[in-house]
């Protein structure tokens, strides 16, 4: 199980990466942490001709607070670095929770935050949290740079809005509205596995009722999924006494999860309902 031949290039600047993506006539793929890409290469399920390694590009290696109070995580930032960063730990608990669910530390020590977004695995945690937090993905290409809302970025399993010559340079997580609390819950058969189903939630409490309720599911379809009917019915309710059976029915109407070797669609639907309830109650407890 060895990768097919490719040429390896260690990029030194963003311009260098963009140049490779635009000018090289061969099939070019960006390599960051490699934790999703290299298994696929080893199994020869992908065969790019050139790999451009972006991990040594200084501009992509930083975690910083932008002037408007957003968290900017550069494309070469490893998940472990984000997880251990005091700023992230203090103000972006949903990002911390998402990362802690990713694989194992041995994977997170190489894997990058933006790599997980660009890879767009339908059962991945970070895309869901990006949607939950209204994150924006910064993209650059020979045509200049642009910004994509997370909700618009994910198009399907392993499919994003990214053009072949575009590079993700960073992700911006806006600060959470005051009073909101988060939870990321997922179901796996073993710690560290891809989520069978997961949900990232954000709630706020006013007068002992949910004044905000947002839930983004993963592992239930090709992209992170929000279910407006469910969010609408929960806002204004007390989650400890809410009609969760009715919520489950709404979910069943809205979601059509896949069946695979790990779980049937029926189980995924049941898990979505169970996890939603547990996740919202966990976040509610923090309010």
């Amino acid at each position: 199980m060895k990768p097919a031949p490719f040429d390896y290039v260690m990029a030194t600047s963003v311009a260098d990466v963009v140049n490779h993506l635009a000018e090289d006539e061969r099939e070019v793929k960006v390599l960051a942490g490699g934790q999703s890409l290299v298994p696929v290469l080893n199994m020869r399920l992908a065969r790019p001709q050139v790999l451009v390694d972006i991990t040594r590009v200084p501009d992509l290696q930083t975690i910083e607070l932008t002037p408007d109070g957003e968290l900017r995580i550069g494309a070469a930032v490893r998940q472990t670095d984000a997880l251990e960063h005091p700023l992230v730990r203090r103000d972006w608990p949903a990002v911390v929770s998402a990362i802690r669910h990713i694989g194992h530390p041995q994977i997170r020590n190489s894997g990058t935050v933006c790599g997980s977004l660009a890879h767009a695995d339908s059962s991945a945690e970070l895309p869901a949290v990006a949607v939950l937090l209204d994150a924006r993905i910064q993209v650059v290409s020979p045509r200049g740079s642009r910004e994509v809302r997370a909700a618009d970025f994910f198009l399907g399993t392993f499919t994003t809005d990214l053009a072949p010559d575009e590079l993700v340079t960073a992700v911006h997580f806006p600060p959470s509205p005051a009073g909101t609390r988060h939870d990321v819950s997922e179901f796996t058969q073993r710690r560290g596995d891809f989520a069978t189903v997961g949900v990232a939630t954000r709630v706020a409490r006013r007068a002992d009722l949910l004044s905000e309720c947002r839930a983004v599911f993963f592992g239930v379809g090709g992209t992170p999924v929000r279910v407006p009917t469910v969010e609408d019915v929960l806002v204004g309710s007390d989650p400890t006494t809410a009609d969760w059976a009715a919520v489950a029915t709404l979910l069943a109407e809205a979601l059509s999860p896949p069946t695979d070797v790990h779980a049937s669609a029926e189980l995924r639907l049941e898990l979505a309902a169970t996890l939603l309830q547990r996740s919202i109650l966990s976040a509610w407890e923090l309010c």
Binding site: Q189, R190, G192, D260, V261
Partner: peptide, 27 residues
């Protein structure tokens, strides 16, 4: 609890990696 080497109806193995064939772990 975990392990199951599966084939689909066409005889294609569907658990051909350690991501899909679940070995016990310390937990």
């Amino acid at each position: 609890l975990l392990e199951h080497l599966q084939y689909d109806a066409n005889g294609q193995p569907t658990t051909a990696t350690y991501m899909d064939y679940l070995m016990p772990t310390v937990e």
